[in-house]
Amino acid sequence: MRRQLPLALVFIFGVFMIVQYFVPHEYSEWVYEFLLDWITIIGIFALALGIYSLTHVSMGKIRNRTPNWQYAIVTMLGLFVMIYFGFTARTGDSWGLYFVALVALTLGISSLTWGAVETQASRRKIGFAAGLGLLAVFVLVAVFDPSWKFYFYTSEGLQSAMFRNFFDYIMIPIQSTMFSLLAFFIASAAYRAFRARNILATLLLASALIVMLRFNPFLGPVGEYIAQTANWLLNVPNLAAKRAIVIGIGLGIVATALKVILGIERGYMGRG
């Protein structure tokens, strides 16, 4: 039951999707579409598990005072503050009570978790008491302050000013800087290939150089030949190798998918 039923489900849905591919009728399309919708919806539920895991690991770091535990606090603060702004909105003009609620909520959750994490009984009590008190403040503000509310406007919910600011001024800069690190890493990777000195690395580097130099205006007449060679490389051997890889990958995917459907490959299922 614990293992056989899931394997049977895999088989049934797998075979259904294969059969579905050959049936153009709209009923088949309809089922296909909502099965894909289901996957998206289940994914959102799974995100809750993810957030739980992140919180659990961060709290564990703080509790055990593992090296760099201070930074886990930064993660947790970022997480809760962002969730707060993602789920609430300021409807009035003043920021005052909105921030009071935010601070009360953040500190309340932190105190409660501190209480949960702390080993000493007396400190636990203080943590819980402070946490509940702060949460009470938060609830009071939430109920009696008309200048903000839990944000239930879907389209605007994601455009709440602070949420946007956090996205534009924290997420985007870090993200694009991480991405731009690639410029440095690609250079160090090229150097690594240069030092490797075996025939495969040399081949790789040579064709990389030819392709990189293909638009270089400083090469003069030589540039023309390089451009031609690069074009030939990209159009001929590149095409051949890509095709060989694609066929291989396709076979690998097809074989693995078939093994999964038939229940031969069940490593992903765990046991017991």
Partner: peptide
Amino acid sequence: DEIAQIPFFIVACDYTLIGEELYAAS
């Protein structure tokens, strides 16, 4: 099996399973 990323792995890793080899590995 992401063809565009295989070159980077080849350069920076000690061993790289190319494409189908990943599926064979299990």
